[in-house]
């Protein structure tokens, strides 16, 4: 061949024209910029000194960055009636206990529903699918009635226990187990006399690591971002997010600190997603709904 000593030419991928590729890049670049501007603007605002926050014409970027706004935020936290560390502790406590219970209960149920053939399992799964079709607004008021009947209103249980049964978590875990845990392995363990609980913990769970990482992230993000909760009145049971909202309602003088708090709350979920992205994508790849 004539071209044997030339570097291999890169052929265009199947069905891909150069013009189309350029079009895709341009669309992604434009929309990506629009998506990211508000987040960049939040970060820029949080770093602006007071005279740059109120300047005309306003600038997107910061000229003389300062960390004073973050200092202000912590100083404002010190002025609250309930010590601020209490709100931080609450949020952490709710997030951790809620997430642990959520992952345990939904994986256990998902294992039984995907790997043990018991009567009623397809009916129960159908109910889970239906529950994805409406959100908690619908059940808010009657949940309040149920919870007051159970004596849970204004206790930590009003937040933690409902967080243990998110149906989307069960759904994801069940779909993932169905396609990633081979039945043959479980069958041979059963023949050796292992009980279902043992098989679940020792064999199935290690095989679905991406799924429980995903469940942890989704549950934790939900609890972490939780603000006011209609079942909680006591100030000392409220969350970090709620308290920060209250502090920052204080108007213009606090807009630097407000931007700082937005940055603080958004940075945690974003970093967590960066670290766990490949696990989450892997879990979502089995999440489709077969009919």
């Amino acid at each position: 061949m004539a071209s044997y000593n030339k570097p291999a030419k890169r052929y265009r991928a199947l069905n891909r024209s150069l013009g189309g590729d350029i079009g895709v890049y341009i669309v992604l670049a434009i929309i990506g910029t629009i998506m990211v501007i508000p987040l960049v603007y939040a970060i820029a605002q949080s770093l602006k000194p007071l005279d740059e926050l109120f300047i005309f014409p306003p600038r997107l970027f910061v000229v003389n960055p300062t960390h004073k706004n973050f200092g202000d935020l912590f100083r404002l936290m010190g002025t609250s009636w309930v010590p601020f560390s209490r709100y931080i502790f609450n949020t952490l406590f709710y997030s951790v206990t809620g997430t642990i219970g959520n992952v345990l209960l939904s994986s256990m149920a998902a294992y039984a529903m995907s790997k043990i053939k018991f009567p009623g399992r397809s009916f129960l799964f159908q109910m889970i699918v239906y529950s994805l079709m409406f959100n908690a607004t619908v059940t808010g008021i009657t949940n309040f009635i149920t919870m007051s009947a159970l004596g849970m209103v204004d206790t930590i249980f009003a937040i933690i226990i409902p967080a243990w049964c998110t149906t989307f978590g069960l759904y994801l875990m069940k779909q993932f187990m169905e396609s990633s845990v081979p039945d043959e392995v479980l069958e041979s363990a059963r023949l050796e006399g292992a009980g279902e609980f043992r098989i679940f913990i020792k064999i199935a769970m290690p095989m679905v690591k991406p799924a429980w990482i995903t469940l942890i992230i989704f549950a934790f993000n939900g609890l972490w971002n939780q603000g006011a909760n209609m079942f909680i009145y006591s100030e000392q049971l409220k969350t970090f997010n709620y308290a920060i909202g209250q502090i920052l309602a204080g108007g213009i003088a606090r807009s630097g600190a407000a931007a700082a708090s937005t940055v603080v709350t958004m940075i945690v979920p974003i970093i967590v997603f960066i670290i766990t992205q490949s696990n989450i994508i892997q879990t979502m790849s089995t999440s489709g709904m077969k009919d």
């Binding site: 508000p38 987040l39 709350t265 958004m266 974003i270």
Partner: peptide, 12 residues
């Protein structure tokens, strides 16, 4: 990440 971030960025 860029497209997904707004949906998880708390009250951003």
């Amino acid at each position: 990440l860029i497209f997904y971030a707004p949906s998880i960025a708390g009250n951003a």
